[in-house]
Write a protein that binds this DNA or RNA. Structure first.
Lengths: 115, 115
DNA sequence: GACTTATATAAGCATTTAATTATATACTGA
DNA sequence: TCAGTATATAATTAAATGCTTATATAAGTC
């Protein structure tokens, strides 16, 4: 019972993280394509620290993983997360991100990266 | 595109509502069984106004419907909600509420109701 | 090493949130 | 009509949240 209560709290914590439009959009984009911070910045009007802080929260919750490549840090969904399956399901209900991904690829801010 | 952005905001708003352990538990219970406020109060340690305020938020978002029967107001999930299907899916990932429902039925606080 | 770009962290601030207490409303039954 | 029970609302407050600006760290280039 305390175990279940804990799980409920943890699940609520994850849903609360998804309950922010910026974070939810970040996750929806990363569901389609890994991105570095400067790529995500093309999508939102908020500042770079704001994006970094959202990514930090998602990473701290185990939902994201990061990988540095040169100057760039690439973020992607973390399939090992206990909540990966729930996350995928929720993201299937979320508006399509093709427009935002187009925006990223058009701007191509990380062009000097070898990828 | 503004349409999609709106939908994203609205979806995030719903997820944020689910991102509170009390509200998430309320929804999980109501997924199994309609309840009146005094029944829900058996489950949580918080005050009656706290429960009422959570119910209000969920109702304002269209996730719940209420029906008065005598002194009691019964709450249940609102199947007409645009988010009912998402909600059901998420609730399938949430810890089982049998223990809490047992607690409600044992206490039977609305016993004088004809139901 | 100096300069630039990418990202992270820290500090401060305004807003939002969830709880509490007090009070109001709605219904029931004597 | 009065008393009791169930629920809602209002006002207040403390805590959490998300943003901004400023600064730090890390890597790349010359």
């Amino acid at each position: 019972m305390p175990q279940l209560a804990m799980e409920m709290e943890a699940t609520a914590r994850v849903l609360k993280l998804l309950g922010d439009p910026t974070r939810l959009t970040i996750l929806a984009i990363l569901h389609k394509r890994e991105c570095c911070v400067c790529e995500l910045m093309e999508v939102f009007s908020s500042s770079q620290p704001a994006i970094s802080q959202h990514l930090r929260k998602l990473k701290d919750a185990g939902l994201l993983q990061e990988e540095r490549r040169g100057q760039w840090v690439y973020y992607s969904l973390r399939p090992q997360s206990e909540y990966y399956s729930l996350l995928q399901t929720i993201l299937s209900y979320v508006p399509d991100q093709d427009e935002n991904i187009r925006k990223i690829e058009e701007a191509n801010p990380a062009s000097r990266c070898g990828c």
